[in-house]
Computed example of a mutant assay.
Amino acid sequence: MRRTFAVSALLIAAATGARAETAATLYSANCAACHRADAAGVAGQYPPLKGRIDKIAVTAEGRRYLADVLLYGMVGQIEANGAAYVGYMPAFNRLSDADIASVLTWISSLGGSKPPPAISAADVTAARAQPLTAAGVAKQRQALEAAHPLP
């Protein structure tokens, strides 16, 4: 019995570690070129993700917005941590719902929230079922910002 439990615990730990490694690899391949490997962004060009995504993901509307940003991209000006950013975020809708959820959850884990909010594949699937344009995502952000300020 103890042996079975120990083996099960090791398998669960290995699977969890593999998911985090996959998410980190996906982030590195798709996000790090702009938002940097440490998710700190580039002042004036690419907003920081670390320490912000976890705060946005605490509400269902925030998780939906984050999924929409990755699925449909975004264009226009945003404010992040008190700094203005004007630009274009490309769509990553070629990634699977599970991959998008994995990357968002991994970025969320870089913030200070304990436990960090998780974005599920179901959250992404729901967002994919209601397509938006990049401009529509920007409007969604404005509405979210009006409801409660985003970091």
Rank of each mutant, 00 (worst) to 15 (best):
M1Q: 12
T4E: 15
T4S: 14
V7T: 12
A14K: 06
T16E: 13
A18F: 11
A20N: 11
E21V: 13
T22L: 13
T22D: 11
T25R: 15
Y27H: 08
Y27F: 12
S28V: 11
A32M: 06
C34S: 07
C34D: 01
R36A: 06
D38H: 10
A40L: 14
G41P: 00
A43T: 14
G44I: 05
L49M: 13
K50I: 14
K50Y: 03
R52G: 05
I53F: 05
K55P: 08
A57Q: 01
A57V: 04
V58F: 03
V58T: 12
T59P: 08
A60P: 10
G62V: 03
G62Q: 08
R63P: 03
R63D: 02
R64H: 15
A67Y: 04
A67Q: 06
A67P: 11
D68E: 14
D68F: 00
V69I: 15
V75W: 04
G76W: 00
G76K: 00
Q77K: 15
I78P: 00
I78Y: 09
I78C: 05
A80K: 02
N81R: 13
N81T: 13
A83R: 13
A84R: 11
A84L: 15
Y85F: 12
V86P: 03
V86T: 13
V86I: 10
Y88Q: 13
Y88A: 04
Y88G: 06
Y88V: 10
M89N: 01
M89S: 02
A91Q: 09
F92L: 10
N93Y: 07
N93I: 08
L95M: 10
L95D: 04
S96R: 10
D99H: 05
A101E: 03
V103A: 07
V103L: 08
L104E: 06
T105G: 06
T105I: 01
T105K: 05
I107Q: 05
I107G: 01
S108D: 03
S108K: 04
S108F: 01
S109M: 05
L110R: 08
L110Y: 02
G111F: 00
G111H: 01
G112V: 03
S113A: 15
K114Q: 15
P115C: 05
P116C: 07
P116Y: 03
P117L: 00
P117K: 04
P117C: 01
I119N: 03
S120D: 00
A122C: 07
D123E: 09
V124Y: 04
V124F: 04
V124S: 06
T125G: 02
T125D: 12
A127K: 00
R128M: 01
A129Q: 03
A129F: 07
Q130L: 11
Q130I: 11
P131W: 04
P131R: 00
T133S: 12
T133G: 00
A134G: 07
G136I: 02
V137Q: 00
V137N: 02
V137E: 09
A138P: 05
K139T: 14
K139H: 13
R141N: 09
Q142D: 15
A143T: 12
H148E: 08
P149M: 11
L150Y: 08
L150H: 07
L150K: 05
